[in-house]
Design a protein around this nucleic acid. Structure first.
Lengths: 346, 346
DNA sequence: TTGTACGCGTTATCAC
DNA sequence: GTGATAACGCGTACAA
């Protein structure tokens, strides 16, 4: 009993191969009775068509892929749910593919397009600058979602849905400055130009510069852990360092809510009250920020709206209904318990 | 410029098709020079072999798959990392495949085996009881990881790595009872027999019964949300209900750390101090439990060890080095800030 | 409505 | 060491 093929089914049914194929693929020109009979045998024998063979032959896959970089990101699961319902509405199939940290998402995409005859791709997470050569090679429509791309205009060969990390980051710092904070520490991620952390750091600097406050490098802490920079552990460890350094500060801006949770813990252990002694601000708008003690002031990214737009845009471009777009979604500053006026201003 | 194929490369190189194939697949019988020349052309043209065609023809895929049910679970990302390093050590490839909540993981597995010629499968999460017929159909070695299966012995046709949810859950309740708590509320998940929540509820009942404490249905709260039962939101909402019900309790056992975080928040908002007024216990051993305020007492599942064993076992079975096993890992009760003696005992 | 034959892009098996 | 050629399992013109 080797692997069952369509041929075996045809034989068992006493029909031709193509008849079986027609039954499987809901083709119109087949009598209902034959169809039923074939399907019965298929169910009975537990036959499963070989997808590799199908992909090889098929021309009209009606399938889009979602490439995810960073499983850890809790944002992504809700985004995927939204993609799924949108994609199903248009009778498309959807495959989810993980991209390892060390892999290039465009390479994976190129490969997958060949393998599955994709009609479109959604990139979730990942770098925000790409090799133009690779971009050019990718012939199917695709859209980046979540990445703070700042792209020059010109002919848009793909779409981009994002929030402007730099602007939103600055928004938070402006808020802290308005509260009266002047010594604001930031816990961010490696300085590589492609990272979101870099953009958020730029926003931080923008805000300070605009008010003529000099940037103090002693207040900038960067996560070096390549594994998962956006972890509570990192926030905790760096805040310990920050405290130990003896440098003066009245607020901490963590560029991710997870980091902020670690920051809060470290401050708590050091006997600092939040926000009376130190204010803490996060970024992302994760559920944890709403339920932790104290609740986190944060920048909430409109993930649902972004995901919705992403899927809709991709499907429209595939259908030829519209052109590619770069869209920047505004994020919302959510004021909660972890921030307040600095001590000296009370 | 349609899709490039191996034929085009052969022509461009002035060699035969099989030579190109040999170059790609690191076959021995090819001269280093030809090999280099072919690889150069491939790099230059950006040729990408079609995976569907490869899978179709290949006999020795050296590939195993990890099927994940529930993206949300933060456990899984660390498990996957471990799988990956183990699998790579043996020169195997690994594909990660998500299984939707409504999909049957065995169906997906069956399909994937045909498509990719898998040599083995790891199931992460998902139901812990399966259709024996489907199990029988799956001819490659596979191992379930994370699910609290209680299986009768006999000839083992697959492996199972788990912690005994029922026993571990009871351990936590015993601990709370030892502290002096008698009125322990539990926040758990739907009662379906296949759910982990059910097992943990059974452990709860076991502990109470063993001490002759009658089970009060008013203390049992079940999440009905099918979306993501293990959410902070659910813990929060159910605790609100619990508080509103006016029923007396001195401790809450949440069957997941995420739920516990929501529980803490709700208690905090109600002005209850943790653990002075109410003790809260979680289950899982997530990072959040270590960094939230107060730190969570919890049952820490030894995910790293389990993942390691899972991968190792699967690879050994594939290599014919050993038979399938059912292994139950002991979990550890981590005592932290969220639990203490009940008020009346202070 | 149904069956036959060809081809999708690749790897494996031969000859050379 | 290298190049034809036959599969792999399926979809689809085309013929019946």
């Amino acid at each position: 009993m080797d692997e069952l093929t369509i041929k075996d089914i045809a034989k068992k049914c006493g029909v031709g191969i193509s008849t079986v194929s027609r039954a499987i693929n809901n083709h119109p020109d087949i009598s209902p009775e034959t169809r039923q009979m074939v399907m019965d045998v298929i169910k009975e024998t537990g036959f499963i068509p070989n997808n590799s063979a199908r992909n090889l032959k098929r021309t009209d896959a009606k399938c889009i892929a979602v490439l995810i970089k960073g499983i850890t990101n809790p944002f992504f699961s809700s985004a995927i749910q939204i993609f799924e319902t949108q994609v199903q509405k248009k009778k498309y199939a959807m495959v989810i593919q993980h991209v390892d940290a060390y892999e290039n998402e465009l390479d994976v995409a190129l490969q997958l397009v060949k393998e599955k005859r994709l009609r479109g791709i959604i990139f979730l997470g990942g770098a925000y600058q790409h090799d133009p050569e690779q971009i050019a090679k990718l012939k199917v429509p695709f859209v980046f979602c979540t990445i703070g791309t700042v792209q020059d205009t010109g002919k848009k060969v793909y779409s981009n849905i994002s929030v402007d990390d730099r602007v939103e980051s600055r928004k938070m710092i402006d808020y802290l400055l308005d509260l009266g904070h002047k010594r604001i520490a930031i816990i961010t991620e490696g300085t590589e130009a492609e990272s979101v952390g870099h953009l958020r750091l730029e926003g931080y600097k923008d805000a300070l510069k605009a008010r003529g406050i000099e940037i103090d490098e002693n207040l900038i802490y960067e996560v070096k852990d390549r594994e998962d920079p956006y972890s509570m552990q990192n926030g905790y460890a760096l805040t310990k360092k920050l405290l130990a350094s003896g440098v003066d500060f009245t607020a901490v801006f963590a560029i991710a809510d997870f980091i902020a949770v670690g920051v809060c813990r470290a401050l708590h252990e050091a006997g600092k009250r939040i926000p009376q002694d130190v204010s803490v601000a996060g970024y992302d708008g994760l559920a944890i920020g709403e339920f932790c003690i104290p609740q986190l002031t944060t920048i909430r990214q409109p993930m649902e709206a972004m995901a919705e737009k992403t899927a809709q845009l991709l499907l429209d471009v595939i259908a030829g209904k519209c052109k590619h777009e770069y869209i920047s979604f505004p994020a919302e500053l959510v004021e909660r318990e972890s921030t307040g006026k600095p001590r000296n201003q009370e």
